[in-house]
Deep mutational scan, measured.
Amino acid sequence: KRYRAVYDYSAADEDEVSFQDGDTIVNVQQIDDGWMYGTVERTGDTGMLPANYVEAI
């Protein structure tokens, strides 16, 4: 699945990823209600991200 960031996010922990509004997130997997795991296409960084900061595309 592919998602697009709708807000900027700065990683708060080493297992999270930072991204900017408009970034595409690929290979996304749902972890639980609030978190997903995926790769930021622009940077190649992979990690956890907050589900409410992205939307499906």
Rank of each mutant, 00 (worst) to 15 (best):
Ile31Asn: 06
Glu55Thr: 12
Asp33Tyr: 09
Gly22Lys: 05
Glu41Gly: 04
Asp33Gln: 11
Met36Arg: 03
Val54Cys: 05
Val17Trp: 00
Asp21Phe: 15
Met48Ser: 06
Asp8Cys: 12
Asp15Asn: 15
Tyr53Ser: 12
Thr24Arg: 07
Ala5Lys: 03
Met48Ile: 12
Ile31Trp: 09
Ala12Gln: 15
Thr43Met: 03
Val54Asn: 01
Gln20Val: 14
Ser18Lys: 02
Asn27Ile: 13
Ala51Arg: 10
Val40Thr: 00
Val26Tyr: 09
Val28Trp: 05
Gln20Tyr: 12
Gln20Phe: 13
Tyr9His: 05
Ala51Met: 09
Asp13Ser: 15
Glu16Gly: 09
Ser10Thr: 14
Glu16Arg: 06
Thr24Trp: 14
Phe19Trp: 01
Asp15Gly: 14
Glu55Gln: 12
Asp45Met: 13
Val26Trp: 07
Glu14His: 11
Ile31Tyr: 10
Gly44Glu: 04
Ser18Thr: 08
Leu49Met: 09
Val28Asp: 01
Tyr37His: 10
Val28Leu: 07
Tyr3Glu: 02
Val17His: 01
Met36Glu: 00
Tyr7Ser: 14
Val40Tyr: 00
Gly44Cys: 07
Glu41Met: 09
Val28Thr: 08
Phe19Ala: 01
Lys1Ala: 12
Met36Trp: 10
Ala5Glu: 02
Ala56Ser: 10
Val6Pro: 01
Gly47Glu: 01
Thr46Asp: 04
Glu41Val: 10
Glu14Thr: 11
Gly34Tyr: 15
Gln29Asn: 08
Val28Gly: 06
Thr39Asp: 02
Asn27Trp: 08
Asp15Trp: 14
Ser18Leu: 01
Tyr53Cys: 12
Arg2Leu: 12
Leu49Asn: 00
Arg42Leu: 04
Met48Asn: 08
Phe19Thr: 02
Val17Gly: 00
Arg42Phe: 03
Lys1Glu: 12
Gln20Thr: 09
Phe19Leu: 06
Gln20Pro: 00
Val40Met: 03
Tyr9Met: 02
Phe19Asn: 00
Ser10Met: 13
Glu41Ser: 07
Pro50Glu: 02
Phe19Gln: 00
Val17Leu: 06
Ala51Trp: 06
Arg4Trp: 08
Ala5Ser: 04
Asp33Ser: 11
Tyr3Lys: 01
Gln29Phe: 14
Met48Tyr: 14
Ile25Pro: 00
Glu55Trp: 07
Ile25Met: 05
Asn52Trp: 10
Ala11Gly: 08
Glu55Arg: 11
Ala5Gly: 06
Tyr37Glu: 05
Gly22Phe: 04
Gly47Leu: 02
Asp23Tyr: 03
Arg42Lys: 07
Gln29Tyr: 14
Gly47Gln: 03
Arg4His: 08
Val28Met: 06
Arg4Asn: 07
Asp32Met: 13
Asp32Val: 12
Tyr9Thr: 01
Arg2Ser: 12
Met36Lys: 04
Thr43His: 03
Ala56Leu: 15
Ser18Met: 01
Thr46Cys: 09
Glu41Leu: 13
Ala12Gly: 10
Asn27Tyr: 08
Ser18Ala: 05
Gly44Lys: 06
Ile25Tyr: 00
Gln29Asp: 08
Trp35Ala: 03
Asp8Asn: 11
Ile31Gln: 07
Tyr3Leu: 04
Lys1Cys: 14
Asp15Tyr: 15
Glu16Ile: 04
Ile57Lys: 05
Leu49Cys: 04
Asp32Ser: 15
Ser18Trp: 02
Val26Thr: 11
Arg42Gln: 05
Gly38Gln: 03
Asp8Pro: 14
Ile25Gln: 00
Thr39Ile: 05
Ile25Arg: 00
Val26Met: 09
Gln20His: 11
Tyr37Trp: 13
Asn27Asp: 11
Asp21Gln: 15
Thr43Lys: 01
Asp8His: 09
Thr43Cys: 03
Ala11Ser: 07
Phe19Cys: 03
Gly47Asp: 00
Thr39Asn: 02
Arg4Ala: 07
Asn52Gln: 13
Tyr3Ala: 03
Asp33Val: 11
Thr24Met: 13
Ala11Val: 03
Tyr9Trp: 06
Ala11Arg: 07
Val17Arg: 01
Val6Asp: 04
Ser10Phe: 14
Glu14Pro: 12
Arg4Cys: 09
Tyr9Ile: 02
Gly44Tyr: 04
Tyr9Asn: 02
Asp23Ser: 02
Asp8Trp: 08
Tyr9Phe: 06
Asn52Arg: 14
Ile25Thr: 01
Ser18Phe: 04
Ala12Pro: 05
Asp21Leu: 15
Glu14Ser: 12
Gly22Thr: 05
Val6Leu: 15
Ala5Met: 00
Val26Ser: 08
Ile25His: 01
Thr24Cys: 12
Tyr37Met: 10
Val40Pro: 01
Arg42Ala: 06
Ala56Glu: 15
Arg4Phe: 08
Thr39Glu: 07
Thr39Arg: 07
Asp13Cys: 14
Gly47Thr: 01
Glu41Tyr: 07
Gln30Leu: 13
Asp45Lys: 13
Asp15His: 14
Lys1His: 11
Met36Gln: 04
Gln30Thr: 11
Glu41Lys: 06
Gln20Glu: 09
Ala56Gly: 08
Glu14Cys: 11
